[in-house]
Design a protein around this nucleic acid. Structure first.
Lengths: 138, 138
DNA sequence: CCTTGCCCTGACGCCGACGTCAACGCGTAC
DNA sequence: GTACGCGTTGACGTCGGCGTCAGGGCAAGG
């Protein structure tokens, strides 16, 4: 399988695959013409990477998982290094969620307060034809 | 007050203030030598910006608040445009929180599963002297 | 005179994960 | 022949919010 097909089957782009290779994450064999050649195993690795990316992992953080699979383990997280990354990431996510939740609540409070103080009314719905609020541009 | 003092009083840097001015967000009067001059009102505007930044607002999103204050309103969110940004941001934050929470849960599940399947043990604590786990490099 | 301290402008660096363009090779189909 | 479709490498662009020089000015103090 060549780069175009792999990209399509994994739902990504050829640019991404070349990028991964440049990072040493997903090297490919080559034909005599220099074209990259992949197999089903590479598709598996690629899907592992993409899944982790969706979870918010950085590329470097997916490396232990890829190495683990390539070492013959049944899953990308069958290695201690991968599990360690899980733990670290979980902590980061929790920290991030905490900060975001706090910010969200602050914004919610400010919004309610500001709406309450707006003289033109909170305009929850059905507020037609207020002169000042014309032309809701998009 | 000049740029250094304002930066210090707001807990930011001169570079940041010059950047804000370059974006048209916080323009300054000048002395004859071309030095920037600020007053207490500017400090207020700057604090508004910084607060919103902490909530995750982009610089452009703070503009309505700054304009609102500069227009003489008692608070940055005393204008419909500011409230509209609040609403938009609240939605974005909720969406982001939802996605992050989902990712977090997925990671948590995977972590538990992977720990359960690790032959070397989940190593919750008190696992001393296992030969394979030597040299925990940092 | 020289240093120190504050200020100025302009411009490149950074981070991550690619997008996009340029210029080219190779094989096949028309 | 030539146009198409796929591949190749290299390199610059993107987004935000600044950090970090480089090179210079102006005033006070020793």
């Amino acid at each position: 399988m060549r780069i175009g097909e792999l990209a399509e089957r994994a739902g990504t782009t050829t640019r991404t695959l070349r990028y991964y290779e440049s990072r040493g994450l997903l090297p490919a064999r080559r034909t005599e013409q220099g074209h990259r050649v992949y197999d089903e195993g590479d598709l598996r690795l690629l899907r592992e990477i993409r899944t982790l990316q969706d979870f918010g992992f950085g590329l470097e953080e997916t490396r232990p998982f890829v190495d683990c699979l390539r070492a013959g383990h049944p899953a990308g997280d069958s290695c201690p290094a991968s599990v360690a990354v899980y733990r670290r990431k979980l902590g980061e996510l929790d920290a991030l969620l905490g900060r975001l939740q706090e910010a969200r609540d602050q914004v919610a409070v400010q919004l309610l307060r500001a709406e309450a103080e707006l003289p033109s009314g909170p305009a929850p719905r059905c507020e037609l034809g207020t002169e000042t609020t014309a032309s809701t541009e998009e």
